[in-house]
Amino acid sequence: MKFDDKVPIYYQIKNYLYHEMITGQLKPGGKLPAVRQLAVDLTVNVNTVQRALGEMMTAGIITSQRGKGNFVTTETTRITQLKEKLVMEELERAYEQLHALNLTDDEIIVGLKQYIAQRGQRND
């Protein structure tokens, strides 16, 4: 995985794993790879992985079972909430950037609709 060196790595690892959960690559109740394996797979430091997992545990997205490893929560509502949160963050980012270009709310909606329509044609 390619990381943006300007953003804390633990934060990017968290987002990567959240992404895996939301898209179902990691299922509710599913086991996460061992910490060192994750570090090798993502080419990051073991401590950085641990920091990311620690925050995910605090947030209740994963649970640790002594001697067995880390598991995705079985509470699917938490994953739904996570998805909503990430979608909101992405929307906020796009919204603020468009606002910075002096677009009004209506212009943003029109622009977005046009973009989706054009993109749909291109994919056909």
Binding site: D5, K6, Y11
Partner: peptide, 15 residues
């Protein structure tokens, strides 16, 4: 700490 540099200064380690 590497992640402190990223969080505090918003730049990569190289920069």
């Amino acid at each position: 700490a590497a992640d402190d540099i990223r969080a505090e200064f918003g730049v990569g380690i190289e920069r």
